[in-house]
Design a binder for these strands. Structure first.
Length: 373
DNA sequence: TCTGGGGTCCTAGGACCC
DNA sequence: TCTGGGGTCCTAGGACCC
């Protein structure tokens, strides 16, 4: 597939682009774009479905390689890592290196080569004094390059970039800023009195992201980028949602779908050995109007209990006669149960346990609850 | 062209408590 | 009568990220 125009995304009629190769991006295809639009822009591209579960193991192997270079590896997402190299320069220094920067440059080259050899994946690297600088630098380095922002050059580097490039400035912030005449980060780094007055928070955000003075050590600070947590050790919430191929009006179908979603998310919770205190419902009408409701209850991971709450929330929230486009059921306020007293199981818990045993052996779809189609 | 699914974090108001 | 001050929890919505 290397060198080919490839689009990966949900192919079910209402899917969006998850990822697109550079050949297709050149035609204007972007991730998040409806597949239909991508097909209009790139009719001859190769369209592939998302293969859930295939990418995670690659990320784990990349991480193993990176850990050989520094113990401080922060997993930011399935395809992104932050490495804190402070304190490692002396360990990696070699006689040929003229200074610490030379050491870092040489080690980065070695690291990229190792990732390539051991996983077959290309990698882009950005080097800088803060995570935001490093991330923006790696963005500029794509595809498969390296960009080094030397100490003291952070503001100069960032100033030339459009505001949207700063991690944390999304579409809404961009629109506000551009509407106010601010198009590049430099305007926030050296603000006029007028800009400072109109965008004080944005000015502060850019300064905090770009200037290294108060960069705390990785791992101790609140991450500017959420740590991706493949094992779910410290996960704060979990949810399952589904957009229907055709909007649904039949209340029996809606209820079935809610039960199926509750069943799936509870199964995930039980696999992690956690209970949830708060149940969330998400619904989206045919016109895209989206609502969320939640209720806090005694901690549970029993499908029937969560489904019951979800159904109640749904019926209370559904005030419009429109068909439903999306439903979701989520759990939060997750707690690890204390030392298990061996109390007798309720009937619901016993059913959950039996279903889990079958699924552990034969997969999720091996067994289905009565009433969920 | 017609808008996925999985998350995190932040804000803001109201309830409730001392 | 004309109404504190602070803290925590709950709920809803929204921005943002990949």
């Amino acid at each position: 597939m290397i060198g080919q125009p490839v689009v990966v995304g949900g192919l079910g009629g209402r899917g969006v682009v998850t990822s697109a190769s550079y050949e297709v991006r050149a035609l204007g295809v972007r991730s998040g774009m409806p597949i239909g639009e991508a097909q209009r822009l790139a009719p001859h591209a190769i369209y592939l479905p998302v293969r859930h579960g295939v990418y995670g193991p690659y990320a784990a192997r990349v991480r193993e390689v990176l850990l050989r270079y520094t113990p401080a590896v922060q997993t930011a997402s399935i395809d992104e890592f932050f490495l804190d190299f402070r304190g490692c320069e002396a360990y990696w220094a070699r006689p040929g290196d003229v200074d610490a920067d030379a050491t870092v440059a040489r080690v980065v080259a070695e690291m990229r080569a190792a990732v390539g050899v051991e996983t077959g994946l290309p990698a882009s690297v950005g080097v800088g004094a803060t995570r935001a600088i490093a991330k923006m630098a790696s963005g500029r380095a794509k595809p498969a390059g390296v960009l080094f922002v030397p100490a003291g050059k952070e503001a100069e580097f960032a100033s030339a970039l459009p505001v949207r490039k700063l991690p944390g400035f999304g579409a809404v912030a961009e629109a506000r800023l551009v509407h106010g005449g601010v198009t590049h980060l430099g305007q926030l780094l050296q603000p006029t009195d007028d800009i400072l007055e109109r965008f004080p928070h944005e000015v502060e955000a850019v300064r905090a992201a770009v200037f290294p003075e108060q960069v705390p050590r990785l791992g101790r600070d609140r991450p500017a980028f959420q740590e991706h947590d493949p094992e779910g050790e410290s996960q704060g919430s979990m949810s399952n949602e589904r957009t229907f191929r055709d909007d649904v009006s039949d209340p029996r179908v809606v209820e079935d779908q809610l039960r199926a979603l509750a069943e799936r998310v509870c199964w995930r919770a039980r696999k992690r050995g956690i209970l949830a205190r708060t149940v969330h419902l998400k619904m989206r009408y045919a016109d895209f109007d989206t609502l969320t409701r939640s209720r806090t209850i005694p901690a549970t991971c029993v499908d029937a209990t969560v489904a019951e709450v979800a159904l109640e929330l749904f019926h209370a929230a559904r005030t419009r006669p429109l068909p439903i486009r999306l439903l979701g059921v989520g759990l939060s306020n997750l707690v690890h149960p204390g030392p298990q007293l061996s109390l007798p199981l309720t009937a619901h818990e016993a059913v959950c346990h039996t279903v889990d045993v079958v699924r552990a052996k034969y997969g999720y779809d091996a067994i289905r609850r009565g009433g969920t189609r």
